[in-house]
């Protein structure tokens, strides 16, 4: 394939302690993600998908193995470099939105953009996510779907190499969830951003270019969709 490799994950493992229990979250995961690709990582809870996402996003470090982004080995980065990496190259979307409660929608976005090198026009992004007229609202004045749109806008506005979404629809109802997925799909197409979504909802896999199946910390299967489904037409 003539596609350019963006992310190269090589044989990574991760162990961590949760309270008094030792958890083996990842076992020898190896895969690549290409530029502009829309990838869904699918697996039940506890399968290690969040850990994988966190490591790719420079929020966590593996116990073993290497991760390359654009041929830079981020697993060799120190804390400072990782911070810069997160600042300039990564956009995160979380399940629980994680907006700052005492900042308005637009301020939440500016919080992210004012520290990164070349951000996109915030007003345009707000229009793209359909919240231009609500930009002055505080999170507590918005619905979950609206908050998640703000979170997506916050991630996109940084103009990152990579958009990482951790169960972005997990806290939302079906219809809102679908609209969020369309939004992510549009952003993938419009801005040619690489998007990685992790979810336990197998229906979402249909909209991806590629689906990685995970179980117990291992990638057990890779599935390529030649014709991804339009997010509006998936059901769960």
């Amino acid at each position: 394939m003539g596609k350019e490799i963006l992310i190269s994950v090589k044989d990574i493992s991760k162990e961590y302690k949760m309270g008094e229990v030792k958890v083996k979250a990842l076992k020898n995961a190896t895969f690549d993600i290409f530029k502009g690709e829309f990838v869904v990582i699918l697996g039940p809870s506890g399968s290690g998908k969040s850990t994988l996402l966190n490591i790719i996003g420079g929020m966590d470090t593996p116990t073993k193995g290497k991760v390359f982004i654009n041929n830079n080995e981020i697993t060799a980065f120190d804390e400072k470099k990782l911070t810069l990496y997160r600042r300039n190259e990564i956009g995160f979307v979380f399940q629980f939105y994680n907006l700052m409660s005492n900042l308005t929608a637009i301020e939440n976005i500016e919080l992210a953009t004012e520290i990164c090198k070349d951000s996109l026009n915030i007003e345009n992004i707000l229009k793209d996510v359909g919240l231009y007229d609500r930009k002055g609202h505080f999170p507590s004045q918005m619905s979950g779907g609206e908050q998640q749109r703000v979170a997506i806008a916050r991630a996109v506005a940084k103009n990152p190499l990579l958009l990482l979404c951790d169960e972005p629809t997990g806290a939302l109802d079906y219809e809102t969830g679908v609209s969020i997925l369309s939004l992510l799909n549009n952003i993938n197409k419009k801005y040619n951003k690489t998007v990685v979504i992790i979810t336990h909802n197998s229906a979402i896999g249909n909209i991806a270019d590629r689906v990685l199946h995970m179980r117990s910390g291992e990638i057990i299967d890779t599935e390529i969709n030649e014709n991804p489904t339009d997010p509006e037409r998936i059901e769960w």
Partner: peptide, 15 residues
Amino acid sequence: TTIGVLKALGYGNKS
């Protein structure tokens, strides 16, 4: 969590 999010957004320890 907020601090985690801010770190995820690229804010360093110092700031």
